[in-house]
Nucleic acid binder design. Sequence first.
DNA 1: CTGCCAGTTCAAGTGAACTTGAGGTCAAGG
DNA 2: CCTTGACCTCAAGTTCACTTGAACTGGCAG
Lengths: 149, 149
Amino acid sequence: MKDLDIAEVARHAGVPASTIRFYEEKGLIRSIGRRGLRRLFDAGVLQQLALIALGRAGGFSLEEIAQMFAPDGQPRIRRERLAAKANELDRTIRRLAAMRDGLRHAAACPARSHMECPQFVRMVRLAGAGRLAARPAPQPRARAKRART
Amino acid sequence: MKDLDIAEVARHAGVPASTIRFYEEKGLIRSIGRRGLRRLFDAGVLQQLALIALGRAGGFSLEEIAQMFAPDGQPRIRRERLAAKANELDRTIRRLAAMRDGLRHAAACPARSHMECPQFVRMVRLAGAGRLAARPAPQPRARAKRART
DNA sequence: CTGCCAGTTCAAGTGAACTTGAGGTCAAGG
DNA sequence: CCTTGACCTCAAGTTCACTTGAACTGGCAG
């Protein structure tokens, strides 16, 4: 059958089994049943895990993600709210693009002090426009340890 | 004079003073002296704080940021390394753009099950291409509390 | 039938990034 | 001179997102 046990999910998604259990516990995903003790998941869980990883990369907390998508993967918030999230993401993206350009520039510009380089300064200001205390960020932590139990 | 005390920095940057002290302790920024006990900062620290916020939003840890920029704001890693960071950011940006599009689509698409909507699925796959366990993400936590001591 | 081993639960631990609290200090105003 | 208030230090606490460890279980190979 098409159902996956936790090890397979872990392998395909590239996340440790413990994370999968943790997400289930948090209501982000749902197992479709058990064989003995073992959780069984619908193959769709892989999409959901992708969605979760995506959301995390975008700076959303697990809780926010949980509110955006039901444990079966359906969006569950009002359309306008979704659109708002999209806009938020859009702003983040613009700031990141500015930073990327800034980094590239820093890697190429010969100026000794980048803070004195008009291009660089312009990008910092552009990127930081508005509240600087924007979304914090990720910590890579335990690097994709891969399916351990 | 142009120097700012910690409260002014906090106010301008929109971060609590405790964060500023914390960043200094971590070597991300540097105070230029003291008046009595009070730290004094050069105005340039505001740019640096912007840079830090930016980096955090881009998924870099404080340590990574510390390695990218010296406490005076100068980039301090090899140019190729900077360029690599820029590329990394670029990949993140692409994934986020995919998610943004996915969200917008979800907000507009009439399909009952988005996982059955070819567009949506395509974006999830596109975005999640490669390792799904990409960069984790931020937790907004204490929302811009503004300059408390 | 017997073990094995990958899975299970539950509680506790970890690391990052801050925040908070207790107790201290100093420069400026009255 | 004395109070006051903003800032100081240092240790401990908090939140998030997981991970780890100890003790247990049950389907399947032999």
